[in-house]
Design a protein around this nucleic acid. Structure first.
Length: 145
DNA sequence: GCCAACGTTGGC
DNA sequence: GCCAACGTTGGC
């Protein structure tokens, strides 16, 4: 899961313990939270749109999927007038802090790993803020820490 | 600040 | 249902 550190960083999650992953307005990302995530699933926490884009730690899914309350908040820029409580369009999960890496594993470094070829994160122009990571890639990335 | 790569919107 | 125009993301 990507997050802009200026908006919400791994340190913020460490401080808060857990966080509702709200305001995601992309159908693919929503589908992953709604359909693919299970309580206990571990997540790489990635800092994006910043000086050194990098995987900086691990978080974990800690709720069932449920409707994003922000979609009903008229004062929010993420308010969705086409959504309704009867059939909410945007679904999210809560995530909890697991640990922060001793050092950030930078995108540059990840690109240098031949074993990570084909990772969705590395695709040019990739804009997905939530994406699956294969077991092989997960294990390989952990050896880089 | 630039620009590639998408996703979304809306006219037809 | 197509597709052009536009908006957003995010690395560089």
């Amino acid at each position: 899961m990507k997050s802009e550190p200026d908006v919400y960083s791994i340190d913020d999650l460490h401080r808060d313990g857990r966080e509702m992953w709200d305001s995601i307005r992309n159908y693919q990302a929503r589908n992953m939270m709604r359909d693919d995530m299970r309580i206990g699933d571990e997540i790489f926490f990635y800092h994006s749109s910043c000086k050194v884009p990098a995987i900086v730690g691990i978080s974990r899914v800690c709720s069932e999927p449920y409707p994003d309350p922000v979609q009903f908040d008229k004062t929010s820029r993420y308010f969705d007038p086409k959504s309704s409580k009867d059939s909410p369009r945007w679904i999210l999960v809560d995530v909890e802090f697991v640990r922060k890496f001793d050092r950030a594993i930078t995108l540059t470094e990840l690109r240098e790993q031949p074993g990570l070829d084909g990772m969705i994160l590395m695709r040019r122009g990739n804009r997905l803020s939530i994406m699956p990571v294969s077991d092989e890639h997960w294990d390989l990335i952990l050896t880089l820490e």
